[in-house]
Design a protein around this nucleic acid. Structure first.
Lengths: 188, 188
DNA sequence: GTGCTACGATACAGACCTGTATCGTTCTCT
DNA sequence: AGAGAACGATACAGGTCTGTATCGTAGCAC
């Protein structure tokens, strides 16, 4: 009864890790297959093209993001506390060694063409976050919820990039405090 | 008396534009040479490796950044106004069609290894900006200048990434207002 | 004129990349 | 037991990338 991981999942996990850590263009399918310990043809049987693997990784990242978002904000009573809980969680995350920035910002940087499939998924994800922020800002009673949402959005992505640029010792140590300040200013 | 551009400069200008718009890995030396209208060997005579061209572009970008920073903040009387002037200028820039994000964030994303020459230059640049922000935050009379500086830093990079991700219609329209809020909160 | 240097154009070497083809094996289902 | 699907390994095709080598030419100093 050894725990066996299906080849498809193994490929996906390895590709996810390599894409996230090393970048999309820098990682080749040969490397993914080799590090997965599976054959190249098996990889291509499940993912007909590298782009499919990239898109699959991004869509899964989107899923994980929202699962985590729901988990993090579940116990917060108010919309204001939900936003804060998210930024506190993010602040913790970006100073952990498992953080290599944001998969969506990374893919948008490596593939700037907006019609690239990966960029599309990234755009949709970020747009969803924006909208969620707006909902919460509205619920929280912000005077200009759209403005607050976008300002928080900038903070979030700035924190992600700080992590990728600087590693663990990055300037995002006071992220949550900044979010708090912006929220407070938007309420009064 | 036709204005002649030296081949070296032509290569540099073309490479700069292509790197910034399309990314570092996506642009090959053949493309740079072809679009410059010069021979490949001429390119390699002036820049022995592609990485040299990348580093040259980044160092020049650093120079341009500080020249612009000085220009923008020159007429501001106080440190607080200098910071605000910078963020107002940045807000204008990131919504212009000539903005493709931040060359330094881009290179750090495409080459995550911190020992890569381009990543090194990017780190030094960002560190310099951080330090400059701290100086200004201190001069402005912030209670915790280091905290304010890093918070503003996150806003800046978030705005750059918003531009690269969304293009002209990005969430950085209220960047300066956010900077103002953070500064105000840090003074009182 | 005569070297000399910078240059453009082109071909090339070697590596790497994506994606395909082939073959033998192992596992599962019946 | 036997058929068929999934798999691992490997070789390969065609393209692209970085960097080098070669050749002919145009401008410039002396």
């Amino acid at each position: 009864m050894k725990k066996e991981i299906a080849p498809r999942d193994k490929v996906f996990q390895t590709a996810s890790r390599l894409f996230y850590q090393n970048g999309y263009r820098a990682v080749g399918v040969d490397t993914i297959a080799a590090k997965s310990g599976i054959g190249k043809m098996t990889l291509y049987r499940h993912y007909p093209a590298k782009d499919d693997l990239i898109v699959a990784y991004l869509k899964n990242s989107d899923q994980l993001f929202w699962n985590n978002f729901e988990l993090i904000t579940r116990d917060a009573a108010t919309a204001c506390e939900k936003l804060l809980a998210f930024f506190q969680s993010l602040q913790e995350y970006v100073k952990s060694p498992t953080c290599y920035g944001c998969p969506f910002l990374n893919v948008a940087t490596e593939y700037p063409e907006t019609d690239y499939p990966g960029h599309q998924v990234a755009l949709e994800h970020k747009q969803s976050v924006r909208i969620r922020f707006r909902q919460l800002a509205k619920e929280a009673g912000a005077k200009k919820p759209d403005v607050l949402a976008d300002q928080l959005f900038l903070l979030m992505d700035g924190a992600y990039m700080a992590s990728r640029m600087f590693g663990i010792k990055n300037p995002a140590a006071h992220l949550a405090e900044a979010a708090q300040t912006l929220i407070d200013a938007s309420l009064e």
